[in-house]
Design a binder for these strands. Structure first.
Lengths: 226, 226
DNA sequence: ATGTGTGAACTATTTCACAGCC
DNA sequence: GGCTGTGAAATAGTTCACACAT
């Protein structure tokens, strides 16, 4: 269930503040969901609460971590060491959740050899070696869009069955391989959509000179790509 | 609808390859959804297809862009110029979709004044000035977790009603303010969950030396094993 | 012929509301 | 008294299947 990581973070936050016990109501508020939904989600993992009392934070953290597979070590490789790859390499949330970065790879010779977040960037030619040698099970693709499918095919051929894709393309993979996509511009687009609605109609703030007029045959290509 | 940006990207991909017309079946395959769902989504925006033929790519691109509010200019500010903020500042997908970055802000004096992606990093003290002066309507928070809620409160007080949050915390905001959260570790956790399932049971590959034994105190060992 | 647009059937998810336990 | 766990009801979302336009 995709909400478990959210609950887990809310719980670790409570844990850090020394809270030993939470009710479904409190935890639901912290996680931003309805309390009945939270109880149903948690009851699906087992009966880990105490009626009249609530849930013991530490115990629940462990049970959710276990359900998510975070009590074991996952080896990841980051392919593409541009700005985003660098950010990911230094991202604390990976190590603290049991994700170990086994390699940073890039095709650019001016980047290969650089030291980033304590690791040396390797050439992409070593992709298959590194995947096999370190037992990588999750590949993080942070390459430009054009290179992503090729890299994806290679990591899948090398045995990786889970891919986290940051490149703005829809990757095609064989059955049995999971792909999750994080697209920064999609999130912004969804916000823009809601923002536009708030503005009270089709005309939002800061309208472009072109306005809403449906353009002639060719004109709107420029509007979109501007 | 949260799938429109995905369709839009699939369409622009087709457009670049010179495709003039698509059927719902083809576009659905490119976007990774069921064709009936795609037709229903598109029919919700209006009747933009031709029976027996399909959809005109260019026209549909324009209509979706319009629906999403991408035919107007959105002004964003990025707060927090660490690795992630830098990656966002240089992210091409923003500019190409009508998002204009009006400011990069950070609290760290060693970062303020640096030139990043053609912009000079400003001190966070200027937050309210920049929001008001440039008409910022979307704030992107890429600060450490501890600073995020404070920054969020400030941008909301300054009039921003849409926030894209990359910090690993659940932000609380007043009614009428939209928050979308991108959490890199959550996506990885979801992949790990599925990967664990694929491995055929509670024991996956590369189990930690400690195995499944819970950390800390003893009391729930029995419950887990029982 | 071909492929959209859409009512209808189906499935999944969310919420309600309360019995049962602490 | 208070809070979990969970059937039942309500709601949302998806897929089917086909009438109808081109």
């Amino acid at each position: 269930m995709a909400r478990l990581p959210v609950y887990l973070r809310a719980l670790t936050g409570l844990q850090e503040r020394g809270v030993a016990t939470v009710s479904s109501e409190e935890l639901a508020a912290a996680a931003g969901v309805n309390s009945a939904k939270l109880r149903k989600d948690l009851s699906h993992l087992g009966s880990y609460g105490t009626r009249g009392v609530g849930y013991e934070v530490e115990y629940l953290v462990y049970q959710i971590s276990r359900e998510l597979g975070l009590t074991q070590d996952w080896v990841v490789a980051i392919i593409g060491v541009g700005n985003l790859g660098r950010a990911l390499a230094g991202y604390g949330g990976f190590a603290s959740r049991g994700f170990r970065v086994a390699g940073l790879l890039d095709a650019d010779d001016s980047i290969v050899g650089q030291e980033i977040a304590g690791m040396t960037v390797q050439h992409i030619d070593r992709l298959e070696d590194i995947i096999a040698g370190h037992g990588v099970s999750i590949a993080v693709i942070a390459t430009p869009a054009g290179a992503a499918q090729g890299v994806c095919d290679r990591v899948v051929a090398a045995g990786v069955t889970s891919v986290l894709n940051f490149a703005p393309v829809v990757l095609s993979v064989p059955d049995g391989v999971d792909v999750r996509k994080v697209d920064l511009s999609i999130e912004l687009q969804i916000l823009a959509f809601h923002e536009q609605r708030k503005a009270g109609g089709p005309d939002g703030p800061a309208a472009l000179p072109g306005g809403d007029a449906p353009p002639g045959t060719k004109q709107y290509v420029e509007t979109v790509e501007a």
